[in-house]
Design a protein around this nucleic acid. Structure first.
Lengths: 236, 236
DNA sequence: TCAATCATTGAACATGGTTCATACTATCGG
DNA sequence: CCGATAGTATGAACCATGTTCAATGATTGA
C-alpha cells in the first residue's frame, strides 16, 4: 500500500517548492517584502496550504535557513576531509566560509535575521532543533581535525579544550564577516581588501595558538597560493 | 525669547522619556512584545505624539540602540585612555565589551536586531547616521592606541594597516559573543567558561599579531589578575 | 481678548500574518 | 460503478499592530 507513502512524498516535494520559491523571492525582492500570501500564490497554492507546512512565517524562514546551512556545511565537510595537514584544513574552513558567503550574499543576511530573538523564539522548537542538528556532523568533523592535530602535537590543548580551540577560528571568521557586512558601521574604517583581512586574521589566530606549521604572515604570494589551492581542490 | 528653546528642551525630554520607557519595556517584556501604542500609553501620551518623534518603530529602535551604543562606547573610551601599555589597553577593549554585554543582556540582542537588513534599511537615514556617528570618536581613540604601538615598535604595520589591526580584536570579541549567545547553536560545544574563552582568544590573537609584550597564554593567574585590574581601574 | 498657529489626540485606516468554515478530492467497501 | 468518509485545499474573513489624519485643544502674540 504505497498511497500513504506517495502522499508523504508529494507533501515533501511541495514543501521543497515553497522553500525554493521563498529563496527565489527573497533573492529577487528582498527579505523585507516576502509575504506569505504572495509566496503561496507564486506556487499556485492557497495561503492555507502554506500553513499546512509552516506554523508561521518565522518557521518558514528557519526552514529556509536550515537548507542553506546544509549547503554551507557541505563545504565545511569537504574542507575537513581535504588531503592536507591539520593547519591547512583549519584554514580551509575559513576560506570555505568566506567563499559561500560571497557567492550567496543573501545568506548571511538571512542567518543574521533568523538568529534574532524575534525570529528564533517565534519559530517552532522542532524547526529550531532541525537547524541545530545540521551543525552536529560538522562540529564532529572539525573536532576530529583538532584531535588529530593535538595527537600529532601540532597544537597544545593544555589551556584550551578541543571545542574551545575550534571556537576561535570560527569566531574570527564569523566576527569579521559580520562587522564587514554591517553597512555604515565600518565604512569609516575603509578596509581595502576585506577578504585578505579575514584570511590574514585567521592565520594570525592560528599562529597565536601555536598551530604548526606556523604561517609567515607577511608572505602574500604564499597566502594567495594557498587560498587558490583550497578553492581549486576543495571548493571546485 | 526663550519660548522656542523651552519647547525644544521639552521636546527632547519627551523623546528621552520615550526611549527610556521603551528600554524598560523591552527589558521587562522582551523585544517581541514592544508595541507602539502601548509604549505611548505607558508614557501617558497618544500614539500620534510618539510619531512626532520617530518616523517608525524601526526608527525608535535605532534611536534606542544609539543611546545604548553611547554608553557602551564610553567604556571603550575609558579603556583607550587607561594608563597602561598599548597591549594591555587593546585587551582592555575586549574586557570592556564583554563587561557591558554581560551587565546588559538585552543590549546585544537589540543590536543584533537593529543591524538586521529588515530594521536597518527601514529606519530613517538620519537615525542611521547618528548611530554610526557614535562610533567615530571610538574608532579615532583606538586608532590612536594602534598608532602609538606602531610608533613604539610594539606591533608591525607592514602587513596590516592601522585599521586592519584594530579590526582583528574587534572581530574576535564580537564573533565570540555572537556565537556564544546563539541559543542552541553552540550548546553542543558545551563551553564551560565562555568569558575565559573570549579573553584567551583575544590574547591569542594579539600574540599572533606579535603585539609586545607577548602574553603567556597558559598563565591563568596572570590573566585573572589583569582582568581584575581592568575591571577595577577602568570599568569601576 | 481674540485670532492664528501649532501640538495632541485617538479613532479610523492599511497591511499582512493567521484561521477556519466550506468545497473539493481521493480512497475504498459494497 | 456508486456512495460514504476522511482527508485536503481554498481564500475570504479575522485579527493584531503599525501608521495616519481630521478634529480638538492649547499656546502665543497682537
Amino acid at each position: 500500500m504505497g498511497t500513504r507513502e506517495r502522499k508523504q512524498r508529494e507533501f515533501e516535494q511541495r514543501e521543497q517548492l515553497f522553500v525554493d520559491t521563498a529563496r527565489r523571492l527573497i533573492r529577487e525582492e528582498g527579505l523585507l517584502t516576502l509575504q506569505m500570501a504572495r509566496l503561496a500564490r507564486s506556487c499556485d497554492y492557497a495561503t492555507g496550504t502554506l500553513y499546512q507546512h509552516f506554523a508561521s512565517k518565522e518557521d518558514l524562514l528557519v526552514a529556509l535557513a536550515t537548507q542553506r546551512l546544509r549547503e554551507h556545511c557541505a563545504l565545511f565537510r569537504k574542507a575537513t576531509a581535504w588531503q592536507a595537514g591539520t593547519r591547512d584544513r583549519m584554514f580551509a574552513l575559513t576560506v570555505a566560509d568566506e567563499h559561500y558567503s560571497r557567492r550567496h550574499p543573501t545568506y548571511s543576511r538571512l542567518m543574521q535575521y533568523v538568529f534574532t530573538e524575534v525570529v528564533w523564539e517565534t519559530a517552532s522548537p522542532d524547526r529550531r532543533a532541525r537547524l541545530t542538528a545540521e551543525l552536529e556532523p560538522v562540529v564532529a568533523a572539525i573536532t576530529g581535525v583538532v584531535e588529530q592535530a593535538v595527537a600529532a602535537d601540532e597544537v597544545k590543548s593544555d589551556v584550551l579544550s578541543t571545542h574551545e580551540l575550534m571556537l576561535g577560528p570560527w569566531a574570527v571568521c564569523h566576527g569579521m564577516q559580520s562587522l564587514l557586512q554591517t553597512r555604515g558601521l565600518l565604512e569609516q574604517l575603509a578596509i581595502r581588501a576585506p577578504r585578505r583581512s579575514i584570511y590574514i586574521h585567521a592565520q594570525v589566530l592560528l599562529n597565536g595558538l601555536g598551530w604548526q606549521p606556523l604561517f609567515e604572515i607577511g608572505d602574500a604570494p604564499a597566502l594567495d597560493a594557498l587560498v587558490g589551492r583550497i578553492e581549486q581542490e576543495v571548493l571546485a
